[in-house]
């Protein structure tokens, strides 16, 4: 087991590389999820305060998106 972790003496380089790679992927995943969450909450708020004009908003939104 310790032979596995020592990576033939290259532990620092092998584990740092994988650590950095996985950390970057996780950070981007987390960032994307939290921004999406925030946008969803904000959109819900606005759509609920503006119920009366929902219909024409919908048609306008379809054009922009």
């Amino acid at each position: 087991m310790s032979a596995f972790f020592s990576m033939g003496g290259y532990a620092l380089y092998v584990w740092s590389s994988w650590g950095i790679g996985v950390a970057v992927l996780i950070a981007i995943t987390w960032h994307s999820l939290s921004r999406a969450q925030y946008a969803r909450i904000r959109l819900n708020e606005l759509e609920h305060t503006n119920n009366s004009t929902d219909k024409d908003q919908q048609s306008e939104n379809d054009q922009d998106a």
Binding site: R35, L46, E47, D64
Partner: peptide
């Protein structure tokens, strides 16, 4: 996909604002 749907929501938010 996640980012695109977020950006679409954001555009709608700024239109509503």
């Amino acid at each position: 996909i996640l980012q695109m749907s977020r950006l679409i929501m954001q555009r709608r938010v700024s239109n509503l604002e």
